[in-house]
Design a protein around this nucleic acid. Structure first.
Lengths: 334, 334
DNA sequence: ATCGCTAAGTAAACCGCTTTACCAAGCGAG
DNA sequence: CTCGCTTGGTAAAGCGGTTTACTTAGCGAT
């Protein structure tokens, strides 16, 4: 492979001149640039990025730490981030931590050694402080989707409370009064926020919230299944459930099917996230859609601004959500 | 950050000694290694990978080119690859090409400049020769899932024909004789193979294949929808369809719903890929499962062997598939 | 007493690019 | 005529490792 020096020799100038020319750090007369261009073309010169990186300390790569790349939500987010980063000429290192704190920590440490220029951090487990400590030492970090408290960096979240509010209102407007909430781990940021939105909608309509109808556990299908069993056995049961994740909603759907109940006739159900499968299940799931592509876009934009040195004030961006109405919610029976 | 020289000075030895010690290229008495270890600990030394890479020309990173990371099939594959690569201490650069040949080419070229040590290539469009030409120039390449003819590298595919055969047999065994095939683009490798498996099963049972019941188009929901409309209007229609992708199957499912037909009562349906949503739709989709994790594992294993210099003979690995029986196929009516 | 060998290192070049100085020629102004 | 500025460059020192080729001390054998 031809090097910068080869090009310089061929063009009859110094390597410095070629380097500076290629990086727009010098103005040269056209006669010289023509010679350099010709040399580059002739030798099929490609800059050695490895050398460039060592020399500049920049890698033109960002890292993405995600809980689970096989989860369609995070996969779509990763796709959006990859796409936006590519536009800026940046490569993306993706680490899938599979929900393990150890792997999250290992990933962040590895990324330090890889000298990536920025880090987009996602987690779905409440932090015990270890992530925060680690992230505080790194620069050019953006926290996405779920909070990690105690780190002074830009964050990008969706309007969790508003989403839950819209979903709950949708149920109330359909005539429901006995509404249960099934959500993720209690200490998780998004869980708290969605719960608040739920509470606000209920309060606004003067509806009571029954503590035994608020089930917090995990954003998983299994928990949805379990929660449905707990909520729907016995005569005294809700006529509608707000599931704060489509995975939970699917679990509930399965359980109802097994129990011989029909959605939405016997039970109305609204999910959250609008996963790709939400419209594929039967009945198609009414769900709160998050602007995934926009989240990815803004995360990359923030990172790029930080890399460029325009450190944005540690900001909090809220992206709007939208209720996608399908067929899993209807009027209550009777 | 402390450098190798800092460590050497602190330990009272030369940088060479430290470098060789850390890379196991020298045997030193314990008294010396203790001093070096102490210096490393004291200075919290971490090797600068950028420098190491320039020096050695190796990056300890592999690249993954995938058609669409937001597609659960490829996302799962990416997750498996990432996991296995991490075990070997390798990072993974993921490029999502969104089905564009231009982006595939750009990704491969970018990766050359990134000096990645290996490349796992996936595509879902038949190659016009451009990919092959480009890939022939690169080393340590593995082709995964879908063929790119004319490149002399290890390939890893699943038993496409066997999968289609199993699925078709399943339908025949249930009593079907009027079976249609809906699949992807005609020239695609997997499409050909699955078609062969279908043909073999039909021939074995002495069943004719009606050319107008073999619809080749795209592995997409839209094409499934379109194909169902073509196949199911009019009185003379198949009692079962083999859809060579779950996306196609979903499209067919939608179309039948819209047409007032019921699966599996009026139409039996078998999909291919066993996507995560296959068991979520109603009726749950009988589908051919591919060993995604194993595909990823083997791809990384092959790459690692090539990087280590044990160039394996350009080989063809076939991984077995499995029919997952759910509820979308039953006996024909009447 | 010396030869040869091993153990325990080291000096210096190199990977390919960037960047900080620095310089020389030409030219217009005073 | 010469001072200072602009234009068009250059030499050389990094960046932080790896690697090749070499050295030196010590020791056992002859």
């Amino acid at each position: 492979m031809a090097t910068l020096s080869d090009v310089a020799r061929e063009a009859g100038v110094s390597p410095t001149a070629v380097s500076r020319y290629l990086n727009n750090r010098i103005e040269l007369p056209q006669i010289t640039t023509d010679r350099i261009d010709a040399a580059i073309a002739k030798l099929d010169y490609r800059p050695n990025l490895l050398a460039k990186r060592l020399s500049t300390g920049k890698t033109e790569a960002i890292a993405l730490v995600t809980p689970e790349i096989a989860n369609p939500f995070f996969a779509e987010l990763a796709a959006a981030i990859e796409q936006e980063a590519e536009r800026h000429g940046y490569a993306v290192y993706i680490s899938s931590t599979r929900g393990s704190r150890e792997r999250e920590i290992a990933a962040i440490n590895r990324l330090r050694d890889q000298h990536v220029d920025g880090l987009i951090m996602m987690t779905n487990e409440p932090d015990d402080g270890r992530l925060a400590t680690l992230l505080r030492k790194r620069s050019n970090v953006v926290i996405l989707d779920e909070d990690i408290p105690g780190v002074d960096v830009p964050r990008i979240f969706v309007e969790n409370a508003q989403g839950a509010y819209l979903a709950t209102r949708h149920l109330i407007d359909a005539g429901h009064r006995d509404i249960a909430l099934v959500s993720g781990p209690e200490t998780l940021f998004s869980v708290k926020e969605r719960r608040e939105g739920f509470a606000r909608a209920m309060a606004e309509s003067g509806l009571p919230i029954r503590p035994d109808w608020v089930l917090l556990g995990a954003y998983t299908r299994a928990f949805g299944h379990e929660a449905a069993q707990r909520l729907l056995t016995g005569p005294d049961r809700p006529s509608a459930i707000l599931a704060c994740s489509d995975y939970i909603a699917i679990g509930i759907l399965e359980a109802t099917r097994r129990m011989g109940l029909s959605v939405p006739t016997d039970l109305s159900l609204v999910g959250f996230d609008d996963m790709p499968f939400a419209e594929l299940v039967h009945p198609a799931l009414t769900s709160v859609r998050q602007p995934i592509a926009e989240m990815g876009r803004q995360a990359v934009e923030k990172i790029m601004a930080m890399i460029a040195g325009k450190a944005p004030p540690p900001s909090l961006t809220r992206l709007p959500v939208e209720l996608v109405i399908r067929h899993s919610a209807a009027q209550p029976k009777g």
